[in-house]
Write a protein that binds this DNA or RNA. Sequence first.
RNA 1: GUCCCCGUCGUCUAGAGGCCCAGGACGCUGGCCUUUCAAGCCGGUAACACGGGUUCGAAUCCCGUCGGGGACACCA
Length: 478
Amino acid sequence: MSTVPRLRFAPSPTGYLHIGGARTALFNWLYARRYGGTFILRIEDTDQGRSTPESLQAILDALGWLGIDWDEGPGKEGKAGPYFQTKRLDTYREHAEQLIRAGHAYRCYCTPEEIRARRAAVEKASGEGTYKYEGTCRNRTDAPAGMPSVVRFKMPSGPGTVVLQDKVLGTISKEYSDLDDAVLLRGDGIPLYNFGCVIDDHLMDMTLVGRGQEHVNSTFPQLMLYRAFGWTPPEMAHFPLILGPNREKLSKRKHPEADVMLHKQTGILPEALLNFVVRLGWSHGDDEVISREQMKEWFDFDHVGSVSGVWNPEKLLWVNQQWLKQLDPAVVAARLVPFLEAKGFRVWEDGRRLARLVEALRARARTLQEMAEMAGYFFSDGVVVDEKAAQKHLGAESKAVLAEVRAALEAAGGWTASGLDEVVKQVSEKLKVGMGKVAQPVRVAVTGNTASPGIGETLELVGREQALKRIDAALARA
RNA sequence: GUCCCCGUCGUCUAGAGGCCCAGGACGCUGGCCUUUCAAGCCGGUAACACGGGUUCGAAUCCCGUCGGGGACACCA
C-alpha cells in the first residue's frame, strides 16, 4: 500500500452527534491514525431545512470531547476543500451537466406533486416502498427552456449487476432492475446525498469510505455513479449497527442514550465511552479495557464484525469505573469539579486533596455523577445523622468508645489517613473491642451513615476541625 | 411488500474444519478478604436458531427454514 489512506466522517448538522455517528467517526479516525493517513471532516449540510449552526457546533463539541481530531475540515482548510457541501454547489452542478452530456443523466420535469401522486397510487395498490420512477422524462425534448427540472441518473435498463466488495461484509451484489433513476440534483440545484457524497468522496480523494450498515443499499447507486464518471470507487466498509434495548437501530427519537453529550452530563468519561463503543462491533481478542493509544495501534477492519450490537448500559458503567480507577486521580478530580459545583458544594482549592477524594471514592462510584452524590459529607458543615444508623452505632456504649476516639484524635500528631487509621486501631486495642465497634460509631458520627471509604481516609478528607466537631455533635445527642 | 445484511451464553464478544462436550467480559450468583460500603481475588450460572447436506471430522463450508435488523424521498 503505497498511497496514504484518506478517510472521512461526513455528518449532517441536523442534531446532536449520536452514538452511531461517533462510532463511525471513531472507526474511520482510528484507521487513519493507525496507518498514518488523513482524517477529513466533511459537513453534509445540504438539507437546508434541518441543518443548523447549533447542530454543527454540537457535533464539533462532541468530537472534541471524545478527542477525535481531523486533519482537514472545518477550521482546517486543505487542498480538497471547501468541506461544507453548501459551498460546493457549483461543483455538483458542473458534474451533473457532465453526466447529462455523456448521456448518463437527464432532466426530469415531473413536479414533486406529480411524483407524490404516482407514488401514492402505486403504493396504495402494491404496498409501501414499491414505487419506482418510470423514466417518463428520459427522452423528453419538448420542455420549454427554463421549465423547472431535477437531474436524474439514467440507470442501465438491461440486465446487469452492481457488485460491492465490502471490507467487512464481503461481496454483495444488486440487480440493475432493483434500482431506478434516482434524483441527483434537486430543482433548486442542491445535490442529494448519493450524488454529493460520490462527487466529494472522489474529489477529496478518499481511499476508504466507512459508514454504518444502513447505507449499504445506497452504495449501489453510488457505485453506478462512479462507473458513469469513469472513476475508481474508494474501498468500502459497512459497520454493524448499534441497537437500542428494543433491538431497533439506536435513534435520537426513541433512545436518549444515543446522545453522546448526554453521557458527559451523567459523568461518563470520554475514555470510557470510546472504549465501550469501540467494542460494539470490534474486538481485539479478550481485551476489554482499551485505551485510545491501544485502539490506534490495534484497530483494523478485519476484526470488525457484521452483527449489530445492543447498547448495554450496565457494561458502560463498568467500563467507566475501570477508567475512573485507572486514570490519574488528578485528572479525574479536575473533571469531577463541575459535578461537585453543580451540587452546590464549596469545592476545595487544594488539588491534592481533591485527588485524594477521587482515590477514596473511585472504587465506590461508577460515574462522576455518583461520585459527586456520595461526596456530600466531605463538603458540608456538620452532618445530618441517619436515625437508623445512630440507633445502631451511637448507643451509650458506643458513645463511650467514641469519646475515647475523640480524645485520641485530638491528641494525634498529624492528620493523615494512615496515621488516623492507626489511632482508631490503638483505641480498639486499648479498649479490647473489635475494630467494628470503634470505626462504625466514628463513621456514623462523621459521615452520618454506615458506609464510607476507609475510616482513616474519611477522617483525613473531612478534616480535623469538622471531624472533631461532628463527633462532639454525635456525643451530645440525646 | 420488494431488496439487502445478519443469526455463539440475557448482553458485548473470542472462534477463520480438528487446539471447542466452545474461551473472555458485563449482569446475576456462592465464597474469600474486611472496621462499613465498595473494590479486589477465587468459584458458579448460561450459548454455537433449526433442518438437511459436504467431510474421517463443522460453531466454522453449502442449501433450505425460521427469526432479527436495515433500506426503499426533490432526508442524510
